[in-house]
Simulated assay, not measured.
Amino acid sequence: MIEIIAGVILDIFVGDPKSFPHPVKAMGKLICLEEKIVRKIIHNDLSLKVAGLLIVSINLFIGFFLPFYLLKLLESNRALRFLLSTYLVYSCVAARDLHFEAFEVIKALKRSLNEGRARLSYIVGRDTDKLQEEDIYRAVVETVSENTSDGVIAPLFYMILLGPSGGLAYKFANTMDSMLGYKNDKYRYLGYFPARVDDLLNILPSRITSLMMVLTSIGRFDLKNGYSILMRDHYKHKSPNSGWPESAAAGLLGIRLGGGSYYGGVFVDKPFLGEEGEASSEKHVRSAVEIMYRTEIGVILIWILISYLV
């Protein structure tokens, strides 16, 4: 418990310095290498699908058992074990980094619309070159709310259950999905299992996140509307998980999220979440970041309470 709390505090106050060693960077390099090897030796669809399953199996094994055995080797050195465990927790949670990226878009947008579009492209997959100010703010709110689950609560959930090893294994699955899980011709087969495994691992965290987003908004945001929109709209999203935190945020903030966007020049029609209200703006981005921190702190407090009760 102490290592997880220390790692979360470290993330909140330090974030992820770009030059600092980070496990996710190593994960990304390994996934790139695996994809290159697979594409050199495999050229049919079924084999690519099997290769995707093999990549998932290997990486989940590495993600869980490498830190597990490193920590086990350090059992006799409690101080060093504490430092490594805290670092691993810190590297799995991305609240401060998400906060930073969201506010960087705000800063860029204040300088010019084109700078805002360019900065947004760092954190979203959609085409940003034709987006207007409201579209940019809406996209940031969507990203913050979705990643409140993927980047903050989900790794916390698996670390609470399985220790730092659980968090690293989850981050590996999430990184594989972000790199291989595209629904296009190139990744339809190789990315099939990475995407499915990530969906499976996020089923519980996404639902816990959305409910905690609502619960921790008592006295601050529109709790009643947040719960109502969450229950009504969560299923509208194409993802089985992303619609939960996004619809909760839409209801809590009284704005509409979602809608169609261009991806690689191709328009993808998506339903709206929430009711049409205020235009998305800077204040909604700041509120989405606040909801993220409230949710993170709320999950930790409830975990501490349950730990002491049982």
Rank of each mutant, 00 (worst) to 15 (best):
V152D: 02
V152S: 04
V152N: 08
I153E: 01
I153D: 01
A154M: 00
A154N: 10
P155Y: 04
P155T: 03
L156S: 03
L156H: 03
L156W: 06
F157Y: 15
F157V: 11
Y158W: 15
Y158N: 01
M159R: 06
I160T: 10
I160Y: 13
L162N: 02
L162M: 11
L162W: 09
L162I: 01
L162P: 00
L162K: 03
G163M: 04
P164L: 12
P164V: 14
S165Q: 08
S165G: 06
S165D: 11
G166N: 07
G166R: 00
G167W: 03
G167T: 03
G167C: 08
G167S: 00
G167H: 01
G167I: 02
G167K: 02
L168D: 01
L168H: 12
A169Y: 06
A169L: 14
A169F: 09
Y170S: 04
F172L: 12
F172Y: 14
A173S: 15
N174M: 09
N174R: 07
N174V: 11
T175A: 13
T175M: 11
T175C: 00
M176N: 06
M176C: 11
M176H: 08
M176L: 11
M176S: 02
D177P: 12
D177G: 06
S178L: 14
S178I: 05
S178K: 13
M179S: 10
M179T: 12
M179F: 02
M179L: 15
L180D: 03
L180V: 09
G181I: 11
Y182M: 07
Y182T: 01
D185W: 04
D185A: 07
D185S: 15
D185H: 13
D185C: 00
D185K: 14
K186V: 13
Y187R: 14
Y187M: 01
Y187K: 12
R188T: 09
R188I: 02
R188H: 05
R188N: 11
R188M: 08
R188F: 04
Y189R: 05
Y189N: 11
Y189I: 03
Y189D: 14
Y189P: 00
Y189A: 01
G191K: 06
G191E: 06
Y192A: 09
Y192I: 03
Y192C: 00
P194I: 09
P194S: 05
P194H: 13
P194F: 09
P194D: 10
A195M: 13
A195W: 04
A195E: 05
R196D: 08
R196P: 09
V197E: 07
V197P: 05
V197F: 11
D198K: 15
D198V: 15
D198Y: 12
D198P: 08
D198I: 12
D198L: 11
D198H: 08
D199N: 07
D199W: 07
D199V: 04
D199T: 09
D199G: 13
L200T: 07
L200E: 05
L201H: 12
L201W: 07
L201M: 14
L201T: 11
L201I: 01
L201P: 00
N202H: 14
I203G: 06
I203S: 07
I203T: 10
I203K: 13
I203N: 00
I203C: 06
L204D: 04
